[in-house]
Structure formats: structure tokens, C-alpha cells
Design a protein around this nucleic acid. Structure first.
Lengths: 185, 185
DNA sequence: CACCGAGACTGGAACGAGTCAAGAAAAGGA
DNA sequence: TCCTTTTCTTGACTCGTTCCAGTCTCGGTG
């Protein structure tokens, strides 16, 4: 994800989007039976603009809107929203958890190995083929989660035209984010 | 840290032999060009017997064989083996990393939501259908990782016993009960 | 429209899983 | 065997996240 610096404009004028995906946070909170508070609206707003943000990224974005919000509050809000089904939490290996407001459809993700950028991928072949493992060893499966690993456009470009010095790119992944796998082109 | 130029790249992948996870640890280590040490043999041995173990589980199992081995040594060994392609590391959301000796084939996993038990699942429809997302948003994808979430046989039985059928699909990500382990395909 | 209680936030400490660094101990080729 | 290289031991430390206890506030009620 790209935590751009300039953080949004104070309020979202309901851009008349197709679904209520990007609808007014207030409305969604109410609909979910959750209290409407500033931190919650802010969190939903931020996530709407920057999907796949980490808790910390959300926290700082929220702070830049509201002034000061405790980290704990952000975690609480996120947890509450996840519980209520307003937010989905994904946890790609080797990085902190990321959150997004697109719920309901079981879409998947592509994650960049080098910078951690994440993008949505609609369900693979149209229908969920992955939902039926040939043999689940007796498990009762209720969800299939797919993560595609690869290289995002910009990292790929950087790598191809490389020879470039260590221009401080965005070291998004602090933990071991490089599982050198390759093979299989 | 971005995987900048080279540094620790260029490891020589071991010719993946499907039977490797049954072979003598010593032989495998040699074949991979790694030194043969007691901790390493023990780690591979343990993983052979208990696939999908966490680092901590491996550590304690190894200790019960060798007496005393530092946690750090276990992490080092695991990392070395992963690098050499002798061990694969998986990291299901909400639990610590797990390791297995079955490498080479890109198989997937089923994870039990309530106890964390993990089992292998052979690639879904025979061939990897998941490897080709319809639209990867410009990403260059090189691997697809699939995790099936559900309930393992014993947890399922337990649940059915005292409540209605599995209807509640809530994210049970609490620290799962310990040492509830595997079952093979 | 002030009141009140469950449910939100605050701040700080605590935790689990891993990583880093420096030195002691071995593995194995010469 | 000796010596170099790699591995193991200790122990401090980071990160992301959670737990706790106290304070504040949303929003339903009198």
C-alpha cells in the first residue's frame, strides 16, 4: 500500500458510488448496530481511501484527521468493525495485518514480495474453484483464501531497469519479506 | 528492508525429490551443501514426524532429543533449511509460522479455525488453476498460495456434540489450544 | 434536556514471535 | 592434525498486538 502523505480532504461527500461500499461511514456503522464515534468514522473513511492499510498506517492517517487517537482505539475499532463484518482483515505472511472495507465478496489478493504492495484480485476463474479441495482430510472447509505472490509493476520496473543504486525505496517490509522462491515462471 | 541488489541471492536450489522428506536427514543436509550437525538432523527429524510444527514446538521436541538447544539455534537451522529448500515455511494468519519438510510440490493447506490443526491438501483441481488470476492488476505473479479454513474432524465433532451444526462462521483467531496437531492426507 | 449506564477511548505495561550482535564451539578440508 | 569457516549460545532488543484499569461519551430514557 502506498501511504501517501497528503491525507485526504476532511469529509467524503458520498461520491454516489455503485454500492454502499464506499457509503457514508456513519450509515454503515448504524446499520451494523455500532455506535457512531469520530474514531470509527475516521477509520472507515481512511480504509475506504486506502485499502489494505496496516493498523499503524490507519492509526496515523486517522490521527492526521482527528488530532490524537490512541493506538489502542484504532485496534479496538478495527476489531469491532471486523466483528461486525464492516471490515475484513488479511494477514499476508511476513507483514502486519492489513484491513479493507470490501467485504462480502470473497476476493483474493496479490502481494508484492519486495514492497508489500497489495491489490485485489477478483475470484479466480469466475466461480470459486478453489473452494473445493480434492481432499480436505476430513476437514469441513468453509473458506478458501488465496494469496498470489509476485512483483508489483513499479518494483518490477525498478528491477528490470536496475543497476540503479540503492535509492531509498519504500522499505515497507521490515520483517523478512524475502522468501526467495522463484522457480515456476 | 528491501531485498536490494543481490546480497544473499543466488542460492542453489536443491533438486527437489519428492521422497526427500522421508530420507535420512544427514543425506539431505549433505545434498543441500549444509553442514551436518546434531541440531540440524534433529530439526529435520522432528519435522518429518510432526509436519506443520511451529518453531517453538520444534525447539522443544529437539530439546527432548538432544538435551539443550537454544531457541536461536532452532531459528537459524530452520532459516538455513528454508533457504536451502529443505524446509518450507507457512504462516497461517493468526498463528506462528509453521514448518514442513514437504517441498517442491506446491501443495496447499487446510487450517482448523478453532484448534489450528493443519493438514496438507494436494493441489486443487489436479493442476494449479489458481496460478492464473484473471487480472493481477499488473503484478507479475509467480506463486499462488491457498489456505483453506474450516474445522478439523475432532473440533467439528466436539462442536456438533454440544451445539447446533456449524452455522456460526466467526473469526476464531484467539490463541489456539496447544499441541493439537496434524493428520496427513 | 439533563441523567445515566453500557460501551468507547486513553495510557501504559506486558507479551509472543522473531531478529541482531558478539563471542565460544565445532565441522571438515588441507 | 591444524586452521578456517560455519554454526551454536547468550542475551538484549524490535515489532505488532493485546491486556488492564481508569476516564470519557454516545444515545436511549425520564
Amino acid at each position: 500500500m502506498t501511504p501517501r502523505t497528503g491525507t485526504e480532504d476532511g469529509h467524503v461527500p458520498v461520491p454516489a458510488d455503485p454500492r454502499h461500499h464506499v457509503a457514508d461511514p456513519r450509515a454503515r456503522l448504524r446499520a451494523a448496530g455500532l455506535r457512531v464515534t469520530a474514531p470509527r468514522q475516521a477509520v472507515l473513511g481512511v480504509l475506504g481511501e486506502h485499502p489494505h492499510s496496516t493498523a499503524e498506517a490507519v492509526a496515523s492517517a486517522v490521527r492526521s484527521r482527528l488530532g490524537s487517537v490512541s493506538t489502542q482505539a484504532v485496534y479496538d475499532v478495527l476489531a469491532a468493525c471486523v466483528d461486525a463484518g464492516l471490515v475484513r482483515r488479511i494477514e499476508p505472511a511476513g507483514s502486519a495485518a492489513r484491513y479493507e472495507t470490501r467485504t462480502g465478496d470473497n476476493h483474493h489478493h496479490v502481494v508484492c514480495r519486495s514492497c508489500g504492495a497489495t491489490a485485489d484480485v477478483d475470484c479466480v476463474v469466475g466461480e470459486p474453484p478453489c473452494l473445493t479441495p480434492s481432499d480436505a482430510g476430513g476437514f469441513v472447509v468453509d473458506e478458501a483464501e488465496v494469496v498470489f505472490w509476485g512483483t508489483c509493476p513499479s518494483c518490477h520496473a525498478a528491477r528490470v531497469g536496475l543497476a540503479g543504486p540503492t535509492t531509498a525505496r519504500r522499505p515497507v517490509t521490515q520483517h523478512e519479506s524475502h522468501h526467495h522462491e522463484e522457480r515456476r515462471t
